[in-house]
């Protein structure tokens, strides 16, 4: 069996195809977040998570420290139960506060963590108790309108007399 130039071309072709796949995986996609290093799972219950989705980043001080891996509705407390995987190399204190935040005005939503003063650290399967819900824009506007209307209403009643 002798080698031919045809084999060389096919070899080059297969190499180029595999290289393109590797480029897509590493350069275009983000392989790092896919095969996350060692992590631990914590839970948090929110009154309202707004538009938070699974795979959203968990950030502390702006740095991505983990990912949201699951969201479900808890029928015991009627709250949203968010499961997060945090990287092992980032330990947080037990009284860490979690809040659903938005990057920019209309950007994607993420979970922000702010560490507390407790010396005990979060362990696997722990639950965060201090949570703050997402800001719902409609409610905010509604409150603003109500407060404006209350101000304006008082003046109008006073004026005719």
């Amino acid at each position: 069996m002798q080698r031919t130039t045809l084999d060389l071309w096919v070899g080059l072709f297969v190499m180029a195809g595999v290289a393109a796949l590797v480029i897509l995986a590493l350069k275009v996609g983000n392989m790092g977040s896919f095969s996350a290093p060692e992590s631990y799972t914590v839970y948090a219950e929110f009154d309202n998570i707004g538009g938070l989705k699974a795979r959203a980043p968990v950030k502390s001080a702006g740095v991505v420290v983990g990912r949201v891996t699951g969201i479900e509705f808890d029928t015991q407390s009627y709250k949203a139960r968010v499961r997060m995987e945090l990287e092992k190399r980032y330990p947080f204190s037990k009284d860490t506060a979690a809040s659903v935040l938005t990057s920019g005005l209309l950007g994607e939503q993420y979970v922000g963590l702010e560490t507390g003063a407790d010396s005990a650290m979060l362990k696997d399967q722990d639950k965060l108790t201090l949570t703050q819900s997402a800001v719902v824009l409609e409610k905010l506007i509604g409150q603003f309108l109500y407060s404006k209307a209350a101000e304006g209403g008082g003046k109008n009643e006073a004026a005719p007399k």
Partner: peptide
């Protein structure tokens, strides 16, 4: 392989 090269 061709599709991957197309995308890249």
């Amino acid at each position: 392989l061709l599709a991957a090269m197309f995308s890249a």
